[in-house]
Computed example of a mutant assay.
Amino acid sequence: MTQPTPYLPAAPPALSAEDQEALTDLYVRGTPPNTLRAYERDLLYITAWKAARFGVALDWPEAEAVALAFILDHARDLEDAPQEDLAREAADALIAQGLRKTLACPAPSSLDRRIASWLALHRMKNLASPFDAPQVKQARSKARRAAARPPAPKSQHPITRDVLVQLLATCRGSRRDCRDRALLMLGWASGGRRRSEITGLRREDVSLKELDAKGVVWISLLETKTTVKGETPLLVLKGRAAQALVHWIEVAGITDGALFRPVSKADRVLSRRLSPDAIYQIVKHRVALAGLPEGFASPHGLRSGFLTQAALDGAPIQAAMRLSLHRSIAQAQKYYDDVDIAENPAADLLG
């Protein structure tokens, strides 16, 4: 497999090697880790696609014809295409390399994300992108409309309060149970945290200074998908969620470093932090222990469940967004709209 091209090109004459290295470092430090990983995955896919489709490596800047071919290849189902179809041959090669799952038309969001990464890499190289050409832009718009489909939920079911209670009931007395109870309650009650936000927390991000006086724990997130470093507002934990987190800190003996950590089979707390995938496994495990159907909910269910419960309880959407840190009210409104109209508190205004 052809290896992806580095993010930045060779240093131009006007830029010294030291400045080029500093520029590369600036891009890495100024880009969220999840975005960097997405760039790497998408660059690997795009590089493999062009090698399979045209037999050559990527060009910088890329030709408009190649960008157009990329859109056309990903704007139709290839299951019924002839074996000698060029798009079908390239897709088969990607499937053989484990970079593509099926010959079905990819979701428009997948195509948009890969194009966005390709665009970003052109900008990093200070190059014009072929996706800005009028014909290519129009083809991309038509492809998005032609393949439009209802967005699939990130979690099959929201983890509302009653579902969360079922999951928490499976957490008994071991250190692993204490960790999972604290993790689930923090992830839900602090506004529906994403996996990367939970695993990125450190003991230093938790303030217990108002615990005795007010029963409140303050959480400081370094950054989120919708906020940047240093601008993320403090989040609050109260009641059972605050108690569960403090209990985990005490049981695990955590004084600094990662807040949530792996627990060995011997129930010993390890020093490294949990990975985002471990959050998925924890939710999956607790769903199974609670007797719920396989695949009932994923970690995103904590986020969707928090907003769904806020809607069910009649909490103003602005108050819920203050904790969820949604940037778009339209995005948060989707969870409110999903609440059954019969359960809407406004339906009982007359009594």
Rank of each mutant, 00 (worst) to 15 (best):
A266K: 13
C105M: 12
S174Y: 00
I254V: 15
G30F: 07
E18L: 12
W248P: 05
V206K: 02
A319W: 00
D112N: 14
D256C: 08
N34P: 00
S155G: 03
S207N: 14
D313L: 12
I329M: 14
K142L: 15
T255A: 09
P153R: 04
Q166M: 13
V236D: 05
L312A: 09
L350F: 14
S298R: 09
P108G: 08
Q3E: 14
I317S: 03
P158K: 09
L302N: 08
P130L: 01
T232K: 03
V56C: 06
Q20N: 12
R175C: 05
T35F: 07
A67I: 00
L270A: 13
Q97Y: 04
V287H: 02
D340S: 12
T47F: 04
G314F: 07
R203F: 08
Q333L: 08
L86C: 09
S141N: 11
T47A: 02
P33R: 10
P4F: 11
A96P: 00
C178S: 15
D180M: 08
I254E: 05
N126K: 11
P151T: 01
L234G: 12
L44D: 13
I282V: 15
L26W: 14
E64D: 13
A133K: 00
R113W: 04
Q318Y: 07
D92Q: 09
G215F: 08
E204M: 01
P82A: 11
S109R: 15
D267M: 01
S264E: 09
R37Y: 11
R53H: 05
Y39I: 04
A241V: 10
T5C: 10
K154F: 11
G173F: 03
A116F: 05
G291I: 13
L8W: 06
R113E: 01
T232D: 05
P316L: 04
R140L: 13
A65E: 11
W118H: 06
